[in-house]
Design a protein around this nucleic acid. Structure first.
Length: 703
DNA sequence: CGGTTGCACTTTTTT
DNA sequence: AGTGCAACCG
C-alpha cells in the first residue's frame, strides 16, 4: 500500500520530510490529522523507525485514540500498544515519564492525580485552617492564581518573594499550605504533571539523555495551544537530530486563559533554526459560503498571521443567521430544523451538532429536544466521572492505591454514613499526622488508642480492615472486581437506594463504572484514565444530536452545525469586556473555530431575551454577526417585531416555490406543492403519495 | 451525629 | 433554575 496516495502535493511534501524541524501550518479542515497519520506511517514503513521511538502528542485522549486507530489501519497492524508509537496528551505522556523515573525527584511511582475538585477542596481546607476570610475571596480565584504560579514555574517561596497586595499575600500563604498537604498525600495536580516532568528532565541529565535518544521522532499536534511548561518539555526532549514536527494554526488558539501561548507556534522557526515550513491551505471540509463567512470574522483580528483557505467544493448553502424572541423559541427552531431533515431522510441525527459558548445554554435545548423526542447527547456539562457516586468510588480506589491520600479519605470517611462525624474525623486526622503510619495503617492502630471513642472508633477501625483487605488482594484483583467489592462491602449499593427518583440512575451508573473498569488491567491504569479523561473524550456511537461547548468542538466536524446564543455578553462573553483586546480576539478565534466545524450547513442564532440566573436578560446580537457582513443570509426581523412575526414562514420568498406549483422530483416523479413550512415542502405526487421534502436536498424542478 | 431547611451563588471555556 | 453549604433541630 502506498502511503503517499490520496494526498495533495503539500501534504505529500510534509509526509516526505522525515528529518529536521518541520512546521506544518494547517488551516481548519485542511487534512491535518491525515497528514500526521500518514507521516507516522511513512516513518515506520519506509524509514525503518520503530513505533516505540516515535512520540506523538495530541490535545485530547480522543484525538490520540482516533489517530491510533487510523494508523493501525494504515500500517496493517493490530491496534495494540506494543505496535504503536507513544501517543497521548502532554499530561498522559508526563504521567508515564514520572511513573518510570519520578523517583529521581522524589515523586513516588504510585502518586495519585488531583483533579480540579480535589484542588479546590484543598484550597478551601487551607483557607479554613489559616482562618482567612472566605467571604470576599473565592476559592476558585485562589486556585487559578496557584495554577498560574505553577505554570510560570514559581514555587511557593518564589511567589511569596514577588507577591504584592493583600490578595497575592494571601495566595502565597495558601499556596504554601496547599503544596505541603499535596506532597503529604503523594498527589500531583494537573499542572504538577507537566512541571514535575520538566523538573525531572532538567535536574537529571542522564535521564533526559535517555529519553532524548529514545525518541528519535517527535510530533506535536495543536501546537498553538501549548503552554510554557509544555514548551519547555518539548525543548528538553528534542535531541541533536531535531526531528521535531509541530502542527497547528494560530487562528484556532482558544486556550490562552489556561496558559496556552500561541507565540510558541509563531516563534517555532526561531527556536529551531533550519525549520522547513509547510502550509496546508486547501480546505476539504466546508463549502465556500461557510469558509468565506468564517474568514470574514477572523479577518477582524489584528494579531494573526495572514492566509486564505480555499476549497474547490463549491459555494454550498449560505450561512443562515436567525434572530428569535427567546431561548425557548431558539431551542424549538433548532429542534424543528433537525426533525424536518431527519423526517424526509435527508440526514441522520448524528449529522447535527449544536454549539454554544456556555454550558448553561444547554438547558433550554435539552428541554426542547426532550419534548420533541429527539435523541441527543450532551458532551461536557456534568461528566460521567464527575458524578457524586462515581467520585466516591474513585476516592476509595485512590485511597487503596495511595494510602496517604487524605483528600480521598476525607471524602469517604463517612460515605456511606457510618457514624463518623466531623469532630471524630478531625481528631483522627490530627492524630494521624503526628505519626509515621499512613492512613490505612493508622485506622487499624486506632483500636488501642483513645483518640476517638464510641461508634466512630468502631466504624473507623472496620473501615481500616476493609481497605487493608482489598489492598492486600490488589495483585490478583482486577480493577473491576475491586470496585465490585467496594460497592458491596461498604454498603454503598444500599446507600444509593435512598428512595429518591434518581436512585435507579445512580445504581445504573455504578454498573457502568464496573463495566468500564473491565478494560483495564491494573488499578493505576484505570485511575490514570479516569483522571485524565476529558469531557470531549466521550465516544459517540449512537445516532444522536450532539450538544457541546465551542471549546469542546475543537478538532471535530459535522455536516450541520447550529451555533446558538450569538449575543453580546454571551459570545463574546461579558468578561472580556473589562479584559482587553487580546481576550476579545480570542473570542473571535473561538467563533472561527465553531464556524469551521460545519461541512455543509451552518446556522447561527441570537435571541432577544433569555433566562439567565433564573431571570430574564436581554442581549444584543453579537458583533460577530456584523463581522460576517454580507456573507450571510439574515433571516430575522428586527427584535421589536419578532414576537409578532413568529408564524411567518421565513424562507417562503427565498426558495422560489409556492403552494400550487407543479414540480418534478427525480425520486418521486411529478406532483403539486400542497404546503410549505420553511425548507420543508409537502408535495402531492401523481403516484398518489404525499411527501414532505427539504428543498435543499430534494432538487425539485419547477414545471 | 445526622438530616433538613433556607440562603447565597452561580456561568466562561478544560487537561 | 439548580446546586452547595451553613446554621439549626431532633
Amino acid at each position: 500500500m502506498n502511503i503517499l496516495e490520496g494526498l495533495n502535493d503539500v501534504q505529500r511534501d510534509a509526509v516526505k520530510t522525515t528529518t529536521g524541524p518541520l512546521l506544518i501550518l494547517a488551516g481548519a479542515g485542511s487534512g491535518k490529522t491525515k497528514t500526521l497519520t500518514h507521516r507516522i506511517a511513512n516513518l515506520i514503513l519506509n524509514e525503518g523507525v520503530y513505533p516505540n521511538q516515535i512520540l506523538a502528542v495530541t490535545f485530547t485522549n480522543k484525538a490520540a485514540r482516533e489517530m491510533r486507530q487510523r494508523l493501525a489501519t494504515l500500517i496493517g497492524q493490530p491496534n495494540d500498544r506494543s505496535f504503536m508509537p507513544w501517543m497521548g496528551t502532554f499530561h498522559g505522556i508526563c504521567v508515564r515519564l514520572l511513573r518510570v523515573d519520578g523517583k529521581a525527584i522524589r515523586v513516588p511511582s504510585n502518586f495519585v492525580i488531583y483533579d480540579e475538585d480535589d484542588r479546590k477542596g484543598l484550597v478551601k481546607q487551607a483557607m479554613k485552617q489559616l482562618s482567612l476570610g472566605d467571604r470576599e475571596v473565592k476559592p476558585a480565584a485562589i486556585s487559578s492564581a496557584i495554577s498560574s504560579a505553577k505554570n510560570a514555574m514559581q514555587t511557593p517561596d518564589d511567589y511569596d518573594g514577588v507577591a504584592v497586595g493583600p490578595f497575592q499575600k494571601q495566595v502565597a500563604q495558601i499556596y504554601h499550605f496547599y503544596e505541603a498537604r499535596r506532597k503529604e498525600a503523594m498527589a500531583l495536580d494537573f499542572d504538577d504533571l507537566l512541571i514535575e516532568a520538566v523538573r525531572l528532565l532538567r535536574e537529571n541529565p542522564n535521564i533526559r539523555d535517555k529519553w532524548r535518544s529514545h525518541f528519535t521522532h517527535i510530533l506535536i499536534d495543536e501546537y498553538q495551544d501549548t503552554n510554557a511548561a509544555q514548551y519547555h518539555l518539548v525543548k528538553l526532549l528534542v535531541n541533536k537530530a531535531q526531528n521535531i514536527c509541530v502542527v497547528g494554526d494560530d487562528w484556532q488558539s482558544i486556550y490562552s486563559w489556561r496558559g496556552a501561548d500561541f507565540t510558541n507556534i509563531l516563534n517555532f522557526e526561531r527556536d529551531f533554526p533550519g525549520t522547513k515550513v509547510v502550509k496546508l491551505e486547501q480546505n476539504y471540509r466546508s463549502t465556500g459560503h461557510i469558509l468565506e463567512a468564517a474568514h470574514a470574522v477572523i479577518s477582524k483580528n489584528n494579531q494573526r498571521t495572514d492566509k486564505k483557505l480555499w476549497t474547490d467544493a463549491g459555494m454550498g448553502y449560505p450561512v443562515q443567521v436567525q434572530g428569535v424572541y427567546d431561548d425557548a423559541e431558539e431551542a424549538r427552531l433548532v429542534a424543528e430544523r433537525i426533525s424536518a431533515q431527519v423526517a424526509i431522510g435527508a440526514r441522520r441525527y448524528r449529522d447535527f451538532a449544536v454549539l454554544y459558548r456556555l454550558n448553561s445554554l444547554s438547558y433550554s435545548l435539552e428541554r426542547a429536544f426532550f419534548q420533541a423526542g429527539i435523541p441527543y447527547q450532551v458532551v461536557g456539562g456534568v461528566r460521567f466521572y464527575d458524578r457524586k457516586e462515581i467520585k466516591d468510588i474513585i476516592a476509595y480506589l485512590k485511597l487503596i492505591y495511595q494510602p496517604n491520600d487524605r483528600m480521598s479519605f476525607s471524602r469517604i470517611a463517612n460515605t456511606p454514613t457510618r457514624g463518623v462525624g466531623t469532630t471524630s474525623l478531625e481528631k483522627f486526622l490530627r492524630w494521624q499526622s503526628t505519626r509515621s503510619e499512613n492512613i490505612v495503617e493508622a485506622l487499624l492502630l486506632l483500636e488501642d488508642e483513645p483518640v476517638v471513642t464510641g461508634k466512630a472508633k468502631g466504624a473507623l477501625v472496620k473501615l481500616g480492615y476493609l481497605l487493608k483487605d482489598i489492598a492486600s488482594q490488589l495483585e490478583t484483583l482486577s480493577p473491576s472486581d475491586a470496585i465490585e467489592q467496594i460497592i458491596t462491602k461498604t454498603g454503598y449499593r444500599d446507600h444509593v437506594q435512598d428512595g429518591t427518583p434518581q436512585a435507579e440512575a445512580r445504581d445504573e451508573n455504578l454498573g457502568v463504572l464496573v463495566a468500564d473498569a473491565q478494560q483495564f488491567a491494573s488499578l493505576s491504569e484505570f485511575l490514570e484514565e479516569v483522571a485524565l479523561m476529558s469531557s470531549a473524550d466521550m465516544q459517540v456511537n449512537d445516532d444522536m444530536v450532539t450538544f457541546m461547548t465551542l471549546h469542546a468542538a475543537k478538532g471535530l466536524e459535522f455536516p450541520v452545525v447550529c451555533m446558538i446564543g450569538i449575543e453580546e455578553g454571551i459570545f463574546p462573553h461579558s468578561r472580556v469586556f473589562e479584559a482587553g483586546a487580546a481576550e476579545l480576539e480570542e473570542e473571535r478565534r473561538l467563533c472561527y473555530v465553531g464556524m469551521t466545524r460545519a461541512r455543509e450547513e451552518l446556522h447561527l442564532s441570537y435571541s432577544y431575551s433569555r433566562l439567565q440566573f433564573g431571570q430574564r436578560a436581554y442581549n444584543e446580537p453579537s458583533r460577530f454577526i456584523g463581522d460576517m457582513g454580507d456573507q450571510v443570509a439574515l433571516l430575522s426581523p428586527e427584535p421589536q417585531l419578532m414576537g409578532a412575526s413568529q408564524d411567518e414562514p421565513f424562507y417562503s420568498d427565498e426558495i422560489g416555490f409556492e403552494v400550487g406549483d407543479s414540480v418534478r422530483s427525480s425520486a418521486f416523479g411529478e406532483g403539486t406543492i400542497v404546503d410549505i413550512d420553511g425548507m420543508a415542502v409537502s408535495v402531492n405526487f401523481t403516484s398518489g403519495q404525499t411527501k414532505k421534502l427539504n428543498v435543499e436536498f430534494a432538487h425539485l424542478q419547477k414545471l
